[in-house]
């Protein structure tokens, strides 16, 4: 089953509505929270939802005052700088990086949650984030 990554941003200034929980309750869709940064004024949450229920979740959250956008981009990889060392492999919490049998670096972009931990771990500056 294909999954879609949604970046949900909301303001907490207008109140502290439980947006994620409300959306789960209203839609009945089981949402996977991959990453959440919430402070006193704003929240930014990266969630995983099944493809076919994506629109349902988007509409529900938008109705609750959040702005939702589909995250198409993943970690940006500059192949000409990569030397296939593998410095990124053990740093990534999602196991996005691995070697093929010829020791070439393989990137499974769909697993990426854009946490950015690999960016400084690459000695060759081959990885970058563009949100």
């Amino acid at each position: 089953m294909a999954e879609m990554k949604l970046l949900v941003t909301f303001s907490r200034k207008t109140g502290r509505k439980p947006i994620i929980a409300q959306a789960v309750k209203d839609t009945g869709v089981l949402i996977n929270v991959e990453r959440a940064i919430i402070d006193s004024s704003d929240g930014e949450v990266l969630i995983d939802v099944p493809d076919e229920q994506c629109q349902l979740v988007r509409d529900s959250m938008a109705g609750l005052g959040a702005s939702v956008r589909i995250l198409e981009s993943r970690i940006r990889f500059n192949e000409s700088e990569c030397v296939d060392c593998g410095g990124c492999i053990s740093i990534c919490p999602q196991e996005v990086f691995s070697f093929d049998p010829e020791w070439k670096l393989v990137i499974q972009e769909d697993k990426c949650i854009l946490c950015g931990k690999c960016v400084p771990a690459c000695p060759h500056g081959a990885l970058s984030l563009q949100l």
């Binding site: 030397v83 060392c85 593998g86 990124c88 492999i89 053990s90 740093i91 010829e102 020791w103």
Partner: peptide, 14 residues
């Protein structure tokens, strides 16, 4: 089980 990362490139060494 702890994951390992190489800092040198085995592919390039080959």
């Amino acid at each position: 089980e702890v994951r390992t990362s190489s800092l040198s490139s085995f592919r390039k060494a080959r």
